[in-house]
């Protein structure tokens, strides 16, 4: 359930909760060629949707869920043609260079979003704590 990161593909399955938006954002910013697969997604929090809308990662597959596909198709990024998962395809190779610097740039954004949360480790930290889940060989961090 939720988002699992496999190589350069994030698979959405079941309900994708607000807590995952931070990690998704970070992960997408780290490499702008990374794709997402919404085929297993049954529901996603508005924060996840806006992450997808703002960062527009290439779509490996759109949602199959009838409600999501009916209402969200218009705002989702186009489906990318890359056929294989995991390996960084030619499409992913191109933006590799500029994106290498992305994680560092992403940090300020994270500190901003944890404002007002004193006793919480914050989403950024939470995202890092979850990093073992990342199985991508191409993980830049």
């Amino acid at each position: 359930m939720g988002i699992s990161f496999e190589g350069s593909l994030a698979r959405f399955s079941g309900q994708c909760a607000v807590e995952e938006a931070g990690e998704l954002t970070e992960w997408l910013l780290a490499d702008r060629s990374r794709r997402i697969d919404l085929s297993g997604c049954e529901g996603l929090h508005a924060s996840i949707l806006q992450t997808v809308m703002a960062l527009r990662p290439p779509l490996a597959a759109g949602p199959v869920d009838p409600t999501l596909s009916r209402w969200l198709s218009r705002v989702l990024p186009p489906i990318a043609t890359a056929s294989e998962d995991g390996a960084a395809g030619p499409a992913a190779a191109e933006p590799d260079l500029p994106d290498a610097a992305a994680p560092a740039d992403a940090r300020p954004a994270r500190t901003r979003r944890t404002r007002g949360a004193k006793s919480t480790p914050g989403s950024g930290a939470a995202g890092r704590a979850k990093s073992p889940r990342r199985t991508s060989k191409a993980d830049p961090s």
């Binding site: 807590e19 929090h45 006793s119 919480t120």
Partner: peptide, 8 residues
């Protein structure tokens, strides 16, 4: 709202 698991 201050607890990580119930923030949202």
């Amino acid at each position: 709202r201050q607890l990580p698991q119930t923030r949202f």
